[in-house]
Design a protein around this nucleic acid. Sequence first.
DNA 1: TTGTAAGCGTTATCAA
DNA 2: TTGATAACGCTTACAA
Lengths: 345, 345
Amino acid sequence: MGRPTVTDIAREAGVSLATVDRVLNARPGVRDKTIAAVNEAVARLGYVRDMAAANLARGRILRVAILLPDTESQFLQTLQDALQQAATLASSARMQVELLRFPAKDMHSLAMMLADLAAGGISGVALMAPETPVVRDALRALHAAGVPVVAMVSDLPNSGATHFVGIDSHAAGRTAGVLMGRFLGGKTPRVMVIAQSMLLRDSIERRRGFDAVMQRDFPGIEVGQTLETHGATETLQQVMAVSLAASGPVGGIYLLGSGHRALAQVLSELGLLGRVVTIGHELTPHTIAALEAGWMDAVIAQNVGHIARSTLRVLQAKADQQPINESQERLRLEIILRENLPPSL
Amino acid sequence: MGRPTVTDIAREAGVSLATVDRVLNARPGVRDKTIAAVNEAVARLGYVRDMAAANLARGRILRVAILLPDTESQFLQTLQDALQQAATLASSARMQVELLRFPAKDMHSLAMMLADLAAGGISGVALMAPETPVVRDALRALHAAGVPVVAMVSDLPNSGATHFVGIDSHAAGRTAGVLMGRFLGGKTPRVMVIAQSMLLRDSIERRRGFDAVMQRDFPGIEVGQTLETHGATETLQQVMAVSLAASGPVGGIYLLGSGHRALAQVLSELGLLGRVVTIGHELTPHTIAALEAGWMDAVIAQNVGHIARSTLRVLQAKADQQPINESQERLRLEIILRENLPPSL
DNA sequence: TTGTAAGCGTTATCAA
DNA sequence: TTGATAACGCTTACAA
């Protein structure tokens, strides 16, 4: 005979199936003594619930929503694709995923979308968003309503997020720092740091991690201030020109966020493409091409497929009130060079 | 109304549940015309099978065996632990895993164990083993009997292995090469390569990948022959002494397989610990300690937790005759530095 | 406070 | 070649 079932527990404890179920699901209306008897039988037989059968019987379809900013970035695009794919697969596990985009600059819209979802009886929410007061309040309301909230990529520690799926940004910055320091070798010991914006929590933490390592392990290397480009190629051109004129040539460039295509263009115009150690973040078609072309030396990344699957699994587990498998859900901070690029993604 | 079910298909196709099931599972005894009708209904309604319900109804418990060599290495230990943990979790998905060790040097025993498993009606086998003729024949027999075979860590391409779970060893060697070349910087451009043995397919491929990159990208660096230690610290001591005397000092050491502890000891005695760029493979308590201590510079690894879960998932999918999710099962070739060590494993 | 019985979506047995 | 019908392990009205 195989694993014990509810029927075995019922027989052993001398009660009915319904009572066993009530105890198992901590539903009211059972005498303490009966509860104890059932639990004793559970422990003695080593019973473990068959969640598949349980969900089948419940007949419930989990409805979860995933919200992403509507920014046009390749990272967001690959993340969205991964989520889309994971959602398709998850549909065969009675989970329905709604993928939504919100205006990146309008946190009030996001808050309203969250409120609507709460009102519509959603059973889980995952999102990637900055932690502004409005957002925080909306998330706290969800949390109070018992809806699990998963923060993706960028953590939301003060909003009662149930779980964070992503990597430690400070460690990501530190890793970029070590690679920069070591790869720089005999080159000009001056590094330029470029970002589209420093609004997102993870950009700031990356920069901090980068600086920490540079100061500790490579004191001989000069690291410039963060040059913000706000996504415009012209701005990038200008700030780089100004910086080069003011401080002299650089041996390395650290790209905190996206904007790889613009950087390639400007570097090319300056005749620097492939002549400076360049390190960036996230694996996208652009960064993959840059690694293959050889002008980008390393990329610090997190696996978007893993983020997507992990997000859905965590949402599922939370809805089922099941424990989550920490080691499976922990995202690895990946270092990608040309040599270990995944074969064709 | 939710997803279509077999009942919907039966109604739409004007047949019974049993017939739908026969068509869905490609069982014999159905007229072509009926098959077509059912398939048409399936396509029209967009039916997708609920595997949870299917497995529940089958009531079958998958019995799979996993075979590992009985070598005393930390990598094997971590792999075994990971498999053990994954097996425990898998038991809640009606899969029973038997974890077996075979004498590392006795391929005949392994072949006999495989034959016994085949006779005992196993529904899947996974193993990490060298591809010798006896093993190959035993695996082919399993394959012929319709038992899916998964090769772990080291591929078995000529034995009809159904699937390989592991990383590309040639790429792993290339990655080690790039890092060695770049990290070496201004140090003595001479690298020593050490291995316990060169019997396993992956050691050979790593070495080849390493050499390819060194020749192509770092022609100025001299790479020595592989020094085989056969697991003995004294041998390591001797071969290193001889090599250093013969060719002069080295700037880097590439450790192809295990033996990190012995290496630490010998390096320490020679006063070289932390003074030569050291690169190795696989994340184990030793290599983690070495990275943290700072005398090992990088480790090329594959995630054993991923290997374990992937192996079990693939075995499950093969038994269910389900397609496998390539992107989820593809192992990443990980580069681990002190800065991106996973937080506590 | 507890029990009975129907049903979730699939498979499998047996009879037609 | 097909169709009823009873499982699988669990949940949940509804009854007692």
